[in-house]
Simulated scan of single mutants.
Amino acid sequence: MTVPRGPAPRTGPEHIPDGAAPGPVGDPAEVLAELGRSWKWMLGSAVATLVPGVLVLVWPEETLHVLAVLVGLYLLVTGAFRFVATFAREEHGERLPGLLLAVLCILAGVLCLRNPLQTIAALSLIVGIVWLVSGILTLYTAIAAKDLPHRGFVLGAAVIGIVAGIVVLALPTESARALTRLMGLWLVLLGLAEVAVAFAWRAALRRSRDAGPRGPAGTV
């Protein structure tokens, strides 16, 4: 997952409460930045992770073909969310890791959809690498961002991603059913962790807005 960093949302006619996206006027990069800082956008990213996990767990008898399609769609949607969230970074140098992760998710999603009849090992490798890299980058953000609110939620999400990647890569699955249950479980855990981060970000945005211009200089 991607955690936005930058100044706290400003109050005024050009900014909407809770970090929501502004109107269509203005620079497209600024519009994407406001959207990426929105807690609702982060919640949407969490739902995009949670829903495939629930579907996979509810229908464990589905074939590897269906699993590959679901995972491919999940990775494509996640890549799109991460791409927009990249613009929430204030410094251009901080955007590179998020952009690389977005590209990785999109490429992995294309690989899953391009050949949905691939082997269990190939699907596990693709998902495991994405989760591991995503978890490491999120962990770096949580440690490097000194003013990150609710750091514990972000650290928890990062650890879950790292463990999920390691488990999927290290534990070979002998059947599509075993792989389905494993991925479904981790998707649900990751989705719930991202939901917690989204609501924590909403609380930080509201505190920043209520504090006004004399409040804290920045959030994350």
Rank of each mutant, 00 (worst) to 15 (best):
T2D: 14
V3W: 05
R5F: 07
R5H: 11
G6N: 04
A8N: 06
A8M: 03
G12M: 04
P13Y: 03
E14F: 12
E14V: 10
E14K: 14
I16T: 15
P17H: 04
G19N: 05
V25Y: 03
P28A: 03
P28M: 05
V31I: 15
L35C: 05
S38D: 09
W41K: 11
W41H: 15
W41E: 04
M42N: 07
G44R: 12
G44F: 08
G44H: 11
S45F: 11
A46H: 04
V47D: 02
A48D: 13
V51T: 01
G53Y: 01
L55K: 05
L55C: 09
V56E: 04
L57N: 05
L64P: 06
L64G: 14
L67F: 13
L67C: 05
V69Q: 09
V69S: 02
V71Q: 10
L76P: 02
A80W: 09
A80K: 14
F81L: 09
F83C: 06
F83E: 10
V84Q: 09
T86K: 12
F87A: 13
A88C: 08
E90G: 05
E90S: 13
H92W: 09
H92I: 11
G93S: 09
E94Y: 11
R95N: 12
L96I: 14
P97H: 13
L101T: 12
L101E: 12
L101S: 13
A102I: 12
V103G: 11
V110T: 05
P116W: 15
L117W: 15
Q118W: 03
Q118C: 02
I120N: 07
I120E: 10
A121I: 01
L123G: 02
L125M: 11
L125D: 11
L125P: 00
I126A: 11
V127W: 12
V130Q: 10
W131K: 06
V133H: 12
L137I: 12
T138C: 08
A142N: 02
I143H: 12
A144C: 08
A145K: 11
K146F: 03
P149D: 01
H150S: 14
R151Y: 08
V159L: 15
V159Q: 10
I160T: 08
I160F: 08
G165K: 03
V168L: 09
V168S: 06
L169F: 01
P172Y: 04
P172N: 01
T173R: 13
A178Y: 03
T180L: 03
G184K: 01
L185F: 10
V188K: 01
L190E: 12
A193K: 00
V197W: 01
W201K: 01
R209I: 09
A211T: 00
P213W: 01
R214M: 02
R214S: 04
G215W: 00
T219G: 07
V220G: 14
